[in-house]
Computed example of a mutant assay.
Amino acid sequence: MARKVKNLLGLALLSYLRQDPKHPYELARTLKDNGDDRAVKYSHSSVYQVVAQLAGAGFIAPEGTSREGALPERTVYQLTEAGQAELHDWLHELIAVPNFEYPHLAAGLSFMAALPPSELLQLLDTRHGALLALRQELAELIHTATIVNGVDPLFLADEDYRLAMVESEITYIGHLITRINQPETGYGRVWREFHQEKS
């Protein structure tokens, strides 16, 4: 489905405006406070750009203005009925419909034969170590949020997903290293001959 606003930042802003009206600066602060840079790519200026796009599409509308101290007045936006419908439909699509994505690792693996096996094995070993560290970081983040700070696990579903993806990649990288190193049935023999490497 072609959406009037395609940037996933728009989904985040619609979600926060569903809670209550906010001005763009407050939306940017909410994104930062909730660590949403782990889910959507954004900058302070992009928040204002996407707010303008959402308003132009009729998904949000000015409710009024607010002022904090000596700061200039800021326009406060609220979610419209069309915005509520868009948020609902967008979430349905993202969660229910698998989407073919283009992860960087898949692109690298598509052309990995351009590197000698010995060089690739070093890179995979480096990545494996980084993934182990990331797994530890995610596990600690989830533990701290849920056990120490009492955050309902519902609000950590995205971090659980990231941890599952990291676990899967760790398993796959180990499998790939094994396939490269198997002397007869693995990838390595013809590949090494092509790069004139000794087994």
Score class of each variant (00 low, 15 high):
Val5Tyr: 00
Leu8Ser: 03
Leu8Gly: 00
Leu9Phe: 00
Gly10Cys: 05
Gly10Asn: 03
Ala12Asn: 01
Ala12Met: 11
Ser15Val: 02
Leu17Val: 05
Arg18Pro: 03
Gln19Ser: 10
Lys22Asp: 00
His23Arg: 03
Ala28Cys: 06
Asp37Met: 06
Asp37Lys: 10
Val40Gly: 03
Val40Trp: 00
Tyr42Ser: 01
Ser43Asp: 12
Ser46Tyr: 01
Val50Trp: 01
Gln53Val: 03
Leu54Ala: 05
Gly56Ala: 13
Gly58Ser: 08
Ile60Phe: 01
Ile60Thr: 03
Ala61Tyr: 01
Glu63Asp: 09
Ser66Tyr: 05
Glu68Arg: 13
Ala70Ile: 08
Leu71His: 12
Pro72Asp: 06
Glu73Gly: 11
Arg74Asn: 05
Thr75Glu: 13
Val76Lys: 04
Val76Ile: 11
Leu79Lys: 01
Ala82Trp: 03
Ala85Met: 06
Glu86Pro: 04
Glu86Ala: 15
Asp89Glu: 14
Trp90Ile: 04
Leu91Asp: 07
Leu91Pro: 00
Leu91Val: 10
Ile95His: 12
Ala96Phe: 10
Ala96Gln: 14
Val97Pro: 02
Asn99Glu: 14
Glu101His: 09
Pro103Leu: 13
His104Ile: 14
His104Glu: 15
Ala107His: 04
Phe111Gly: 04
Ala114Ile: 08
Leu115Asn: 03
Leu115Arg: 07
Pro117Ile: 08
Pro117Ser: 06
Glu119Ile: 12
Leu121Glu: 12
Gln122Val: 09
Asp125Cys: 04
Gly129Glu: 15
Ala133Phe: 08
Leu138Thr: 07
Ile142Thr: 04
His143Val: 08
Thr146Phe: 01
Ile147Arg: 09
Ile147Gln: 12
Val148Arg: 14
Asn149Gly: 01
Gly150Trp: 08
Gly150Gln: 08
Val151Leu: 14
Asp152Ser: 15
Pro153Met: 12
Leu154Lys: 11
Leu156His: 06
Glu159Gln: 09
Ala164Thr: 09
Ser168Gln: 13
Ile170Val: 15
Thr171Phe: 05
Ile177Leu: 00
Thr178Cys: 06
Thr178His: 09
Ile180Asn: 08
Thr185Tyr: 06
Thr185Asn: 09
Gly188Cys: 04
Gly188Pro: 02
Arg189Gln: 09
Val190Lys: 07
Val190Cys: 05
Trp191Asp: 05
Trp191Glu: 12
Glu193Trp: 04
Glu193Tyr: 11
Phe194Pro: 02
Gln196Gly: 03
Ser199Arg: 12
Ser199Pro: 01
